[in-house]
Design a protein around this nucleic acid. Sequence first.
RNA 1: CGGGGAGUAGCGCAGCCUGGUAGCGCAUCUGCUUUGGGAGCAGAGGGUCGCAAGUUCGAAUCUUGUCUCCCCGACCA
Length: 483
Amino acid sequence: MLQPIFLSVPLSSWALVGGQSWPRRSITGYECLQWIEAMRLTRYFLPTLKETPADAQIVSHRLMLRSCMIRQEAAGIYSWLPLGLKVLRNIEQIVREEQNRAGAIEMLMPTIQPAELWRKSGRYEAYGKEMLRITDRHNREMLYGPTNEDMITDMFRSYCRSYKDVPKLLYHIQWKFRDEVRPRFGVMRGREFLMKDTYSFDVDAAAAMKSYNRMFVAYLNTFARMGLKAVPMRAETGPIGGDLSHEFIILADTGESAVFCHKDLVDMPPPGVDVDFDGDLQPLVDARTALYAATEDVHDAAAFAAVPKDKQLSARGIEVGQVFYFGTKYSEPMGAKITLADGSETPVHMGSYGVGVSRIAGAIIEASHDENGIIWPMEIAPFKVGIINLRQGDEATDGACETAYQNLCNAGLEPLYDDSNERAGAKFARMDLIGLPWQIIIGPRGLKDGLVEIKERASGARESLPLEAALNKVAAAYARLNG
RNA sequence: CGGGGAGUAGCGCAGCCUGGUAGCGCAUCUGCUUUGGGAGCAGAGGGUCGCAAGUUCGAAUCUUGUCUCCCCGACCA
C-alpha cells in the first residue's frame, strides 16, 4: 500500500549556527537527532471547542481555548495542553538558539528563592504584594521568583572576582510568578509565565553597552524568526531600575500600551542570523534607535511632532521583550565586585534582558489570525502540515493519506493526520482553527483524477495536483525556511 | 486596589422577580441513514443549582456571610 515518494527538494535538518552544526529543531537544545513529532489525530489529545468560552475577551485567548492549547486552572494560571506545549517549546527553542548564537550561556535557576537574597539587595520589602511569599516547614521565608537579578548577582559574586571573568552573559528559561492584581488576556498577562531572562556582567559601562547591543540584535532576529515585526522602543525602567531600556513591541489593536514611532521602523528587516556578534553591533543598534519610537510612559510629544506627518505612527502594542542596562544597582549593595588590572575593585556592571516566552504564544495569535482561527508562522506551528482524509474507510483515500503521512514523517515535516471519522466540514473547520501552515486534502473525488488538494492556511490559496507534487511543494516551503 | 458583573450538566445559557425537588442548544454514548466546509432521525447517560448558615412544611429561587471567576480603571514581561 505504501509507495515511497522521492522528494525532489533536499531537506537539511541541520543548520549552521556560529560555525557549528546544531540541530535545527530539538526540545532540549542539545545536540541530538532531529526531533520529529508526527501524529494521528485519533491518537492525539485535541478536543477543540466549537463554542467560545464566555470568559475569554480577546481573540488570542479565545483561539487558544478553542484550539485546546491551554486550560485555565486559576486566575492567570494555565495548563499547557499538548498542542499549546508544542507551540511554547517552538518559541522557547527559537529564543534559545538566538541566545546561544549571540554568545549567551544557558543555565537554570530555581523558581523558589530564599527571602534572604532579596533582603540583601534591598528589594524584599520594596517589591510589594506582587511577590508571592511562601513559608516552608521550618518557618523559613521563601518566595516564588518574579525575576532573578538578586540570585544571579549573588551567584556571580561567589564565583567571579576578576576583570578576566567578564564579560559574561548568562540566561535561563524558567517559570516566573507575579501576583498581578488583575491577570487577564489569557497567557498574555498571566500570573505564572515562562520567561527567558539573560543577565550580563561587564567591567564598565562601555563594555556593558556591548552586551546590551548583543541582546538588542539577538532580539531583532529572534522575533523576526517568529514572524513578528517587533519594534524596539525607548521605555521606562520600572522596578528593575537602571538608566537605559528598550521594549520590543509588536503592534496590535489589543495591545496594552499606547506607542508612538516612526513608520519606517515597523518594516525594517532584521540584521539576519549571519551577524558577527563579536564585531561592532553599534551601527545596527543605531539604525534602529535613531528614529523616534517610545512607549507612552516616556513619550515626548514634541520629538514625535518632529517626525514627518506621513511617517508618524500612533498605535497600540504588546511588549514581547525588554532590555535593561542598570549598571551597579544590584552589584553595589550585594558586593559583586571584580578586581581590575591595576588592583583596584569595582562593582560589576550589569544588564538584564527578558523575553516573555508564554506571552509570545498569545501575541503571535493576536498578530496572525483570521475569522476561522489561528495562522501559525512556519517555525512556530505545532505541526507543519495537516493531512485531511475526506473519506475515512475508502481504500484509495486511506492509502493515499498513509503515503502522504509516511513521506512527510520521513521528511521531518511533522504532519498531523486527521484520520478521524468525522465529516469533511468538521475536519476543515478544525484544521483552519488550529492554523497549521499547510493542509493536504485527500478525498475520492480528487483521487479519481489522481489529484489531491493543497491549501496554504495563510492565503487560503488552494491547488489541485498529484500527491507527489503536493508533498514536494510543502517540502520546498519548509526547505526555504531552513535556508 | 477602586468601580461593575457572574457562578445551574464538559461548553454556552434559561429558570430566580411571584419558593413546590431542574430545563434548552452544543458536546458525549447507542443504532440507522449520511459523508468535499462544524449532518439528519431515533434513543440514552450526565447536575448535592459555588460553599455555609438562616427563614420556611418545603429553597436553584428569599436573607446573611463566604469563596471563586470575569469586565472597566490604576499597576506590570
